[in-house]
């Protein structure tokens, strides 16, 4: 695992929604919910486009999730595992907030 990279401040995030960042050449989707940040790859493996950061988030059966904006498949925010299609998942990256700064490791 690579080192954590400082990406932006929490002011750049949108509460209960996502934004995209470019970290070491990787497009990352950052979601901000319950004062926590989650990082997933921005690529939608079904829609084949870099759009995950523009999906809506919430929970399903108690698990935090993001719904892909193109076809609305749900992915677990913590694990990246798709809740609708078996065997499918999106890469996740470690992310954290320290002193209002957002760090991601790709």
């Amino acid at each position: 695992m690579n080192d954590f990279v400082k990406v932006c401040s929490t002011n750049d995030l949108v509460k209960n929604a996502g934004v995209a960042a470019l970290v070491d050449g990787v497009q990352v989707a950052l979601f901000y919910i319950d004062e926590e940040v989650f990082a997933l790859d921005n690529f939608d493996p079904v829609g084949k486009a870099y759009v995950m950061s523009r999906g809506m988030i919430g929970d399903l059966k108690g698990e935090l999730m993001v719904a892909a904006p193109l076809q609305k498949q749900h992915y677990n925010l913590k694990t990246g595992v798709c809740m609708d299609i078996e065997g499918l998942s999106i890469p996740t990256y470690p992310a954290k907030i320290e002193n209002d700064q957002v760090f991601v490791s790709c």
Binding site: N16, I33, D34, G55, M56, I57, G58, D59, L60, G62, L64, M65, A67, K72
Partner: peptide, 10 residues
């Protein structure tokens, strides 16, 4: 209850 989802939020 919960956090909501893309259906109820919209």
């Amino acid at each position: 209850k919960g956090h909501g989802c893309e259906i109820c939020k919209q």
